[in-house]
Design a protein around this nucleic acid. Structure first.
Lengths: 230, 230
DNA sequence: CCAAAAGTGTTCGCGGTACACCCATGC
DNA sequence: GCATGGGTGTACCGCGAACACTTTTGG
């Protein structure tokens, strides 16, 4: 029992993940309902304690898989939170991550269909456990800032998407309206998208052309000192 | 002895600080020489273990004061590093910070005049302990990125500075040359600087006008959705 | 008077912004 | 044929980039 002994007191170290997903109308966050105290039954970010044989990134991916069934997402470290009283049990420092999941991916949809896992609109979050509301706000700030100069928005879209979908993504993340013609001109002039020969299906109006993001092109341009800015 | 016992193994939690300073010709980093193993006698970032009664920010400031005599600096959390083997003794996760110090501040100069504390040019660093070279590189990247859209460069300059000093700051941080006329036009058009009635002294050529950064003006503009970009 | 850096304006071209109508499709 | 969103072009303006000479000062 309790065999781990140290000369000085140690904080517990945890990771928590803000997983963003984009549906037809909203930018959403994945939450799980806690089964045990503290904050039993409250909604919280997926996360948990870091093991000694894994890095923080590995811990974040493991918790995402275990607690929410989420795998193969874009994942990036966000910030470390360390208020003395952020966990009522004892001193816990958490390293927060944010992830971008493709809600179009059926594996993600299926996995997060479980009891106690839910997607909530960013403006419609339930009361969250711990300081998780603060972490979500920080993640949204980071996403809003980063989406403008790094090609990460595509991580929220299906592999093939219409320009209208892409524009809606930016509008939702940035919280502003964008002009359709100017947006298209700008995004196409960056020469990062490739037109496919597919079009939207299942819509009862003219079907939109689908594009895909060409990571090769992006990396080639980035290497030349090209600066993305949307 | 060794009275702290836990049910699960815990990593030790540390903070490390990359302190930047600007002198007449270089962007420098503050290092301290280790007195004890591991990496005895090697140069390293100031830092140390986090206590249970302090936040990460507090730990960073405490270590800066204790190990390097540095106080009253701009301080910002950088990133958390967690490779399994980054410390040969045991598992240590470190939360890195970066700080911007005014080398013009005599208190800073005096404190860092001690044995075993030194300022090193970014391109002229000694071999560093642990993964500290990697941390310094990450901090430089962050500074390079952030200085362009946030008014943090001023934290490296004296309260009153010439436009040439400011330009040299940007050139050193960004690693590029800037056009004098364009730089002045741009920076003055932002309406963040106030001309003072002082001029440089002790130079044997025409003395430059000194300016100061007006934080009030910046905050007022920032609140209006103004976007800095240099 | 000489060395050194301060200070100053104009031109050009690109990219951002504002703005409205016709087209294709499914029902 | 109608509702719905897809798709397209132009004019204007402001900002970034390129570029060189005169002024001031101390020694």
């Amino acid at each position: 029992m309790s065999p781990y002994t140290y000369e000085y007191a140690r904080a517990a170290l945890a990771v928590d993940c803000v997983v963003f997903g984009l549906d037809e109308t909203d930018l959403k966050v994945l939450l799980i309902q806690r089964r045990i105290p503290p904050f039993q039954h409250a909604w919280a970010l997926p996360g948990g304690f870091v093991r000694l044989d894994e890095t923080l990134d590995e811990a974040a991916r493991r918790e995402l898989a275990e607690e929410a069934g989420v795998t193969d997402v874009y994942l990036e470290q966000l910030y470390s939170f360390s208020s003395l009283d952020r966990d009522p049990r004892e001193r816990v420092v958490t390293v927060a991550y944010y992830a971008l999941a493709k809600l179009s991916d059926h594996r993600i949809r299926a996995a997060t269909d479980a009891m106690g896992v839910g997607w909530f609109g960013l403006d419609d979050l339930p009361k969250l456990a711990f300081d998780h509301a603060h972490i979500v706000a920080t993640a949204h700030d980071r996403l809003r800032g980063k989406v403008r100069y790094a090609p990460i928005g595509f991580e929220l879209l299906p592999p093939r998407f219409s320009l209208t979908q892409l524009q809606r993504l930016y509008e939702l993340v940035l919280g502003t309206d964008l002009d359709k013609r100017n947006f298209r001109k700008k995004i196409l002039s960056l020469d990062l998208l490739v037109e496919t020969d597919e079009v939207e299906t299942g819509v009862r109006h003219r079907a939109a052309r689908l594009y895909r993001f060409d990571r090769r092109k992006y990396e080639r341009l980035a290497k030349q000192g090209f600066e993305l800015s949307i």
